[in-house]
């Protein structure tokens, strides 16, 4: 049966990340979690499988620490999980990650749709869906909030700055969804219980036969302090002060 593959990333929970007084970032105490936006991708795959037919599955590229993600991902509805289990994931840049996922997608075999989130909640680099599309020579639709299907075609609504664009594409294709695409429900008891019994396929770095060397290297990660501008509009009467405030906000691009 044709597969609908949801890709997700296991990230450090930002709630546990600490910025030290010297701006260094401490993630040693952070728990892992499925990137929030990727939960939308998983839900989108489950919904798409319901409409289009086929089997929703999940795919992740992560080190051994990503283990708990498998049960979590499967409790959200997909029928099978695939895991490229490789320490190389730690240093991977967008190109390496996309290569690893694309190679795994080819190994998985017959698939009609690959669904990613627009970006991961840690780096939000927005590279994965376009790059997978490029490697596999598939059409890519980004910023998707609605998916419907007509025969073997996907009709997707894209959310742009101030308008909605509808595009139609013959499957297979790669899609990047926005968080507005759906509301992933909390998995129920039976879904959680069933997750432990669903099949998992692991690939090692060697299985994929790709180049894991990143060309981008992360040199430093530091916290930053957002300085307030501390502007007080106190001259003139209240009408002119409000006008000044509005003008300043417009200049900053917030109005």
């Amino acid at each position: 049966m044709s597969k609908i593959i949801a890709c997700y990333k296991w990230v450090a929970d930002e709630a546990d990340i600490r910025i030290n007084p010297d701006q260094s970032v401490d993630i040693t105490k952070a728990k892992g979690k499925i990137s929030d936006y990727d939960k939308n991708a998983i839900e989108a795959a489950v919904e798409a499988a319901g409409k289009l037919g086929g089997q929703a599955v999940t795919l992740t590229f992560g080190n051994a620490g990503a283990k708990p993600s498998i049960k979590d991902a499967l409790s959200r509805g997909p029928e099978e999980a695939y895991w490229v289990k490789a320490a190389e994931a730690d240093q991977a840049d967008g190109a390496v990650t996309a290569r690893a996922l694309a190679a795994a997608i080819q190994k998985i075999g017959d698939s009609s749709l690959v669904i990613c989130a627009e970006g991961a909640s840690d780096t939000y680099a927005r590279q994965i869906a376009p790059r997978i599309g490029a490697i596999l020579n598939l059409p890519v639709i980004s910023s998707v909030i609605i998916m419907t299907f007509e025969g073997n075609s996907l009709v997707a609504t894209r959310k742009l700055e101030d308008s909605l664009e509808t595009v139609k594409v013959e499957l297979p294709a790669v899609v990047a969804v926005l968080p507005e695409a759906n509301n992933p429900p909390l998995p129920g008891l039976k879904a959680v219980m069933a997750a432990g019994k669903k099949p998992l396929t692991e690939y090692s770095a060697a299985d994929l036969g790709i180049d894991f060397k990143p060309r981008n290297q992360v040199v430093a990660v530091k916290g930053y302090v957002m300085n307030r501008k501390n502007i007080i509009f106190d001259a003139g009467d209240s009408v002119s002060r409000v006008k000044e405030l509005a003008a300043a906000l417009r200049k900053e691009g917030v109005l």
């Binding site: 909390l186 998995p187 129920g188 008891l189 959680v192 219980m193 432990g196």
Partner: peptide
């Protein structure tokens, strides 16, 4: 869990 119990969290 290792020993065979099933633990369902978040429920």
């Amino acid at each position: 869990e290792e020993i065979g119990a099933m633990v369902a969290c978040g429920v």
